[in-house]
Every structure is written in structure tokens, then in C-alpha cells.
Design a protein around this nucleic acid. Sequence first.
DNA 1: AAATATTTTGCAACGCGGTTGCATGTAAGT
DNA 2: ACTTACATGCAACCGCGTTGCAAAATATTT
Lengths: 136, 136
Amino acid sequence: MDQLKETLKGHHLRTTTCREDVLSTFITKKNALSHGDLEGALGENYDRVTIYRTLKTFLEKGIIHKVLDDEGLRYALCSHNCSEEQHQHDHIHFKCNACGETNCLENLSIPAVQLPAGYKPQNFNLLIQGTCPKCN
Amino acid sequence: MDQLKETLKGHHLRTTTCREDVLSTFITKKNALSHGDLEGALGENYDRVTIYRTLKTFLEKGIIHKVLDDEGLRYALCSHNCSEEQHQHDHIHFKCNACGETNCLENLSIPAVQLPAGYKPQNFNLLIQGTCPKCN
DNA sequence: AAATATTTTGCAACGCGGTTGCATGTAAGT
DNA sequence: ACTTACATGCAACCGCGTTGCAAAATATTT
Ligand SMILES: [Mn+2]
Ligand SMILES: [Mn+2]
Ligand SMILES: [Zn+2]
Ligand SMILES: [Zn+2]
């Protein structure tokens, strides 16, 4: 059975060509993608709105996660077993100021910080900007 | 001499009532503010565009810095001696999911991380979301 | 294989955040 | 006071993202 269809089924989603193409794009390009990137990659095939809705659905079902950025949101594949119930993303994101790519550093977890009394942390987002190995 | 005027002069900016009011709003409310927050606070006094331009100018001159957010950008006062030449912001930002406020934790610097070979880091942005002391 | 129920898509329209051009108004230096 | 450089308001515009609704596609049942 097709790998893409299997992933979609695994997250309780109907297989549609748009979903397959969006998922496939995330897999082949490995960096974080904005809606505009996808629109560029998938061209005239799908309506803008459909891509927005696909991203929203993928977010909810735990297929992708948001990546914070100082200019516009991006999305990246969830590597591990995220689902509708649990998203876990304490890894670092790196944005290259030269090529503009943003990537997940899946192996690097965000270091713990000692917050002042009264703060109850739940989510962590660490974005490091600089130059990536390719542009070095 | 007025404190506000002095700050503006110090960053080589002309004193205008809009700039004074925006700066004053940042000082009295202590949390990070969005453009919308300022529009709400300053009401009918100024055009939206003027507020946008004031924020842009303050950013460039080192009076405020951007604060990352999972939904829309915010801005906060630069505490130390930022200028046109140097912005230094390695402190942590905390966003409360209850009251919605985002604050600078100026005393908490972002812990160093060991990046893989080839990555040259320049900027760090750490956003922690959770519950703040007030909403605890 | 056909019929049905349910979800997904495309289209049009809209709202919001942010930018630009240009004429007018204002601050600062002389 | 006069001049110059900068700041503001207004109008128009663009891009991102959302919503409502009818048509199309998918999954399920017969
Ligand atoms: Mn990631
Ligand atoms: Mn800050
Ligand atoms: Zn790069
Ligand atoms: Zn709070």
C-alpha cells in the first residue's frame, strides 16, 4: 500500500490527491514550508483555500506542527508519533539568514530553564537564526 | 526635561505626540504590545499607518524589539542600551495562555546550546507558553 | 455495482494586518 | 521668522487567512 495513503489513514483522514501532494511535498523538501511555498510547489493544481484547509487539518491531526518565525508562520512534519491527542515538540528550529530555509533540529531538545516562582510552563519554542552548514 | 522626550532624543528621533504616546504606552503597560493593542490604547488620536510607522522606527532605532508569538507579532521595550547599531536580546519571553499577556523575562538569558558542526548562530528567540503568576 | 451518507473541494466574497505614494503639516536649526 | 527635513493623514493597494455555499469526490451500505 502506498506510503502516503497509509500515513493519512493512520491519522484518520480520507485520501485525496491534494493531501497526498501536500504530504509528499513536506517529505521531499525537508525544511519547514509556508503556505506560499506549497502554493508555489503545487502550482495551479489546487485552490489556495484547499491548501489552507489541508494545513489546518494536518495540524489538528498531528501530521505537521507550527514553526515560529519573525516573519510569517511555517509548518514542518512531525517526526515522531504525534496524533490528534498529543503533539510533542521540544526541539530546536534553525533559520538560515542566507538561504532563508528553516529546519527542525530534531535531535536537539530545548534546554530546561529555571523560571521564577509562579510560572507554570507548558510549551517551548526556540528559534535560532544564523548561517546553516550549506551557506557557510 | 521630560523623560519621554529625552529617550527619543537619545535615539535621534524628533519628538512628536504620537511617538511620545506610543512610548508612554509601552512604559505604563509593561507587557509586549501588538499594533492592535496600541490602536486600542491610543484610540482615535492617530492614524493606523502612523502607528505602524512609529513601530518600525522604534524597531530600527533600538527602542523596542520584536517578540515572537504563535499568533501575530508583538513588540516590547528594549531595557538596556540598544541603539541603531546594536540590538541585544537573549532573554526569554513568557506568554500566559490564561490572560494572554506576553512578557520579557529580562533576567533570564537563553541557555547556550551545542549546535551541530557548520551552524553559526546569531540570534536566539525562546518563547515559553504556560500560566503566569497572576493567573495561577 | 449502485445508492447513500459524509467529507472535501472550488469559487466568491470578505476581514484583517501591513505597506506605499503623495500632498499637507510639523519640528528643529539657522 | 524662514527654511529644510522629517512626520503625518488619507487613499489605495496587496497578501494572508477565513467563511458560506453549492458541486464533486470519498467511503460505506445495500
Ligand atoms: Mn520542528
Ligand atoms: Mn523582550
Ligand atoms: Zn542556509
Ligand atoms: Zn496570565
